[in-house]
């Protein structure tokens, strides 16, 4: 819920803020893997279709 309120608060911020946002600052030293949170994307193996032949 906390995240929900935060995003609503952000939404009511004047749209002008939108143009003014700057990208977050540079991440810590990239060479050291310590503490690095990463994401791994997996693909569904075969293209699944809606076909109701199943």
């Amino acid at each position: 819920m906390k995240r929900k309120i935060a995003s609503i608060a952000a939404a009511t911020a004047a749209l002008v803020v939108l143009a003014g946002c700057s990208t977050p600052s540079e991440a810590p030293n990239p060479d050291d893997a310590k503490g690095q949170n990463i994401t791994f994307w997996l693909m569904g193996v075969t293209p699944r279709t809606l076909s109701v032949t199943t």
């Binding site: 893997a33 310590k34 503490g35 949170n37 990463i38 994401t39 994307w41 693909m43 569904g44 075969t46």
Partner: peptide, 26 residues
């Protein structure tokens, strides 16, 4: 993978599956 990654680096590994239909656009 998640537990091993935690052990090796202390960081968290998030795994997301992309459905075939939208994977290319993403």
């Amino acid at each position: 993978l998640k537990t091993e990654y935690k052990k090796a680096t202390g960081g968290t590994l998030t795994i997301e599956e992309q459905g075939w239909g939208d994977a290319l656009a993403k």
